[in-house]
């Protein structure tokens, strides 16, 4: 993944501090991918996890985007099957 900031690509990781009841603090974290050029810009902002701080202890709970993982898997299988469908019959015809 690109990690440097340039004119066209910007990766930002940040967090917000939330006050909570009890003796612990919750910091939700997010990641921003920003692509921009002359006259256009695209921003993708997604949550990455939650950092819990209790006294001196710190724990991070990741926020996993299961929907995107499942969708990417299904569409990836679809693309693979379509490509296979375009390639395989030609090889069968050549063999026959």
């Amino acid at each position: 993944m690109l990690k440097k900031k340039s004119q066209y690509i910007n990766l930002v990781e940040g967090s917000t501090i939330e006050s909570t009841p009890g003796d612990f603090q919750v910091n939700p974290q997010s990641r921003v991918i920003q692509l921009s050029g002359s006259g256009w810009s695209w921003v993708w902002n997604q949550p990455t996890g939650v950092v819990i701080r209790k006294k001196d202890q710190e724990q991070k709970i990741p926020v996993i985007n299961f929907t995107r993982i499942i969708i990417l898997l299904l569409y990836g299988i679809s693309v693979f099957l379509v490509v296979l469908g375009l390639i395989k019959p030609r090889s069968i015809q050549r063999g026959a």
Binding site: I70, I71, L74, Y75, I77, S78, V79, L81, V82, L84, G85, L86, K88, P89, R90, I92, Q93
Partner: peptide
């Protein structure tokens, strides 16, 4: 939607295989 797209691609592969045979 992604699942039905995958089903469509399975049918496409089946049709292409049938045509190839």
């Amino acid at each position: 939607l992604a699942f039905f797209t995958m089903l469509g691609s399975i049918f496409f592969l089946g049709a292409q295989m049938k045509k190839g045979y």
